[in-house]
Every structure is written in C-alpha cells, then in structure tokens.
C-alpha cells in the first residue's frame, strides 16, 4: 500500500515553499515524490539528511525538503558533498543534479568521486536539455536533436551517464525513466543504503523547454514504449526487450531507444572506511616512532 501523499508532504516538505516552481508536466515533481517515498520507507533521520545540488531546475529540489539543503554552484555539488561527507560520515548525503550540471560543467567531479567511492547518493534528472535557460543542447542530447543552440540539429554524440559511471567503477548504478515509478523508488532506496557512490539516472521530461512532444503525457508514453532493459544475466535468450551487452545498447541508443535497468551493483570499501583505517595506521606509526626516538 502506498502512503497518501498529503501525509508524506506534511512530514518531509517545506509547506511554506509550495507549490513548487516546476512547470506543469515537469518530471522533477515525480522525482521529489520518489525520493520522499524512499526516505520514508527507510525511516531516515531528517536531521542527518543533507541534500546537495548544483545549478539548474533539478538543483532547486533541496529547498523543498524538510532537512538540510545546500544549493551550490553550477556543476560543483559533488565537490561540496565530498567535503560534507568526509568530515561527517554520519550524515546521509543525497545529491540532486541535472545532465548539464553533471555531464558538462561538473563531469570531472562526478568521475573523481566515483573513483574515490565517496558514500553519497547521486540522483540525476536527465532531461537531455538545459531546461532553466530555455532548451539548449546538453551532453546527453541525442544526435540529430534540434535545440536553441543546435538550430540545424545536433551533430555531437551523446553521453550515456550510467555506462560512464559503470566504467569509472561506481558500486551502484541504476537507470530508469520517470515513468518507472516503482523501479525508481527501489533504486533510490538501494542507492541510499549502498556503501559508496550510488548513481541513479532518471530520464525525464521537459515539456517547456525541449518541446519534443505536444503533451507531457506523450513523454511518458515515449518512455514506456521505447525503453529496453539492460540485463546482462537474463535467462530469456530470445527476448527482444533485453540487452546483454554494451555494444548492442549503444547501437540501440543511437536508434532512439532508452536503456533502463540496474546497470551495476558491486561491493568495494568506501572512502570513509579506508580513511578510518589510514587514520589508525598513521597514528600507530606516530607513537611507534616516538617510542623509538625516546
């Protein structure tokens, strides 16, 4: 049974900021809903919860949560989050970001934090455009896409952020569209619980700025009809809706398909565990050295 929205709103959102600034048909409200449901299911302590974001529509999300929120500079959310989590590992740090924020200006921070395996959860609202500035091409915009800055269509290849995160060594990566509500909530919960950097990419709609479809509901139809599961260990050999290898995925993506699924789930020690060990080791060495010189 799903909990009623008003009950969750009462507990988790800043009511004096509602209604939100998001446009009708925007996916960000759905992602707020999924996140609230995930943190409610996990019974998380709101005092220990810090939402961090950069710049863009998705980055306005932390304001609405009854928890700590930091709306930082463009692309830098993960750098701020790194400082926050490293100096206080008891906090639960969730980063909201968009594709412009994380795939363009902030891509390096994203990849480096995956390499370090900082224990944060990164939720990317990927609407394949710069929504707030009015619909310019982004690094995840498909080739051939007509935008305000590609009036003659986009001639650049696009990034698949989830596969990028997987290649960089992320311990948990999950990719869905906002039409996959159950899977998205499950992925956010799993990501939050995961020790290390978890990345959840949610393909989203921007009916105001990218205007790919006349109606917001058309986006949801597109999401459901064109998405194909990536499932490397699938039993059903003949299924045409399942991909098992990356090359097939990229070919399909170029043809306009949306690859969804749990891309990676593995275990390795996170930064904080290793830092704790390093601290103990270095302090022991210090005292040993001191004894020897005395």
């Amino acid at each position: 049974m799903l909990k009623p929205s008003d009950e969750l709103r009462e507990k988790y959102l800043r009511k004096d900021l509602l209604p939100s600034m998001f446009c009708p048909g925007c996916s960000i409200g759905q992602i707020m809903n999924y996140t609230v449901r995930a943190i409610d299911d996990l019974e998380m302590d709101q005092d220990k919860l810090v939402f961090v974001s950069g710049i863009g529509c998705s980055s306005r999300l932390p304001a609405y949560f009854e928890a700590y929120g930091v709306h930082t500079t463009h692309g830098r959310a993960i750098a701020f989050a790194t400082g926050i989590k490293v100096t206080n590992p008891d906090l639960q740090v969730i980063v909201f970001t968009g594709d412009g924020d994380i795939a363009a200006i902030g891509l390096n921070h994203f990849l480096q934090s995956i390499r370090r395996n900082i224990d944060i959860t990164v939720i990317c609202v990927n609407n394949e455009t710069y929504g707030m500035t009015g619909g310019q091409v982004s690094p995840t915009s498909p080739m051939g896409f007509k935008t305000k800055t590609t009036p003659y269509s986009n001639i650049e290849h696009s990034f698949n952020l989830s596969f990028l995160a997987k290649a960089a060594g992320a311990v948990y990566v999950s990719r869905w569209t906002t039409a996959h509500s159950v899977q998205a909530i499950k992925a956010i919960k799993k990501g939050i619980k995961k020790k290390g950097l978890a990345f959840i990419e949610l393909i989203s709609a921007c009916p105001t700025s990218d205007r790919r479809f006349p109606e917001p509901k058309d986006y949801l139809n597109y999401f459901l009809n064109e998405s194909i599961r990536y499932k490397p260990h699938c039993e059903d050999e003949l299924s045409s809706h399942v991909f098992k290898n990356l090359n097939e995925c990229f070919t399909a993506q170029d043809e306009g398909k949306l690859i969804v699924g749990e891309i990676t789930d593995l275990d390795k020690p996170d930064y904080h565990e290793l830092y704790k060990e390093l601290k103990e080791r270095s302090i022991n060495e210090f005292w040993k050295k001191r004894e020897n010189t005395d």
Partner: peptide
C-alpha cells in the same frame, strides 16, 4: 573542487 569541499565541510 577544493574550495567547494571546504565550504561544504
């Protein structure tokens, strides 16, 4: 990233 991290921390 360095200044971002120290502001957050």
């Amino acid at each position: 990233g360095s200044i971002g991290a120290i502001i957050g921390a």
